[in-house]
């Protein structure tokens, strides 16, 4: 100890070096933060390019059914029913959609199944806002495309400010959802009560995470480590 104290004899230069070093550390951290934040926001904004030349398909009527946890019912009345529980910000839901989203769209559009989407929002404020926008899109008959677009642009970072009302409207604009009714609905958060009703119905259906899928009321459990269409299709066809 004594030896250490001796060699640390305070001199003017020593103090100066210390402040210089601390200043440099601060400089590195501040520059690093600025750089990281910039690269994150650039990346998020660049994701809009995924929506360039997006062609929106024909509208599909979607109705909110209070008897089914206020889920969004598409193509009602088929004897095969699939229930999909998702949060717009959930990255695993994105993987599920990338593998099976197109197939589910087909089931709806070709009248092969009734699909009920339960739009959850437990991942924070931006999930609530995005879920609201998805219900707004549903009112215009464009739930399928809008919700696909949301997963196309979904940033890695949750609640980073990306899913703002302005950006949600911009996403709609990119895919061709430009009506004033949609914009107003997003800005006024018109569907908050439905968003809340979906969230509140989770315990009733014993859903605690996303994505959760029921095929004819039976919980679907994937066997493979990632999602693959063949496996999901087999499960659906088995009923």
């Amino acid at each position: 100890m004594s030896k250490q104290a001796k060699s640390k004899a305070p001199s003017g230069g020593d103090n100066f070096t210390r402040w210089l070093v601390m200043g440099m550390v601060a400089l590195v951290v501040i520059t690093g933060v600025a750089f990281s934040m910039m690269s994150q926001s650039t990346k998020a904004n660049a994701s809009f390019t995924a929506l360039k030349n997006y062609i929106m398909a024909a509208p599909v009527t979607a109705t909110v059914d209070p008897a089914q946890g206020s889920g969004l019912v598409l193509n009602p009345g088929n004897k095969l029913q699939i229930d999909v529980w998702e949060d717009p910000q959930c990255p695993v839901c994105r993987s599920f959609e990338q593998a099976n989203g197109g197939y589910i769209d087909d089931l709806v559009r070709t009248n092969k199944a009734t699909v009920v989407f339960h739009v959850l929002s437990f991942l924070g404020d931006e999930s609530v806002r995005t879920a609201n926008a998805e219900f707004c899109a549903a009112e215009e008959g464009q739930y399928l495309d809008f919700h696909k677009a949301i997963y196309l642009v979904q940033p890695t970072l949750e609640n980073s400010g990306f899913f703002s009302n302005a950006n949600l409207i911009k996403i709609g604009d990119y895919i061709g959802l430009k009506s004033k009714a949609f914009t107003d609905c997003v800005n006024k958060a018109s569907k908050f009560d439905i968003v809340k009703a979906n969230y509140d119905s989770m315990p009733k259906y014993k859903v605690s995470g996303t994505p959760t899928v029921f095929i004819n009321g039976k919980l679907w459990e994937r066997k493979s480590s990632d999602f693959n269409l063949a496996e999901f299709r087999l499960a659906v066809e088995a009923g």
Partner: peptide, 30 residues
């Protein structure tokens, strides 16, 4: 990979989201 670092800090659910993200950006450089 700054976004992953920011979301990792947020996953601890200790700090408010925005503050957690800021810390996630700053920590690696520190």
């Amino acid at each position: 990979s700054p976004s992953e670092s920011a979301s990792a800090v947020a996953a601890y659910k200790i700090l408010p989201t925005q503050l957690a993200h800021l810390l996630g950006y700053a920590l690696p450089w520190l």
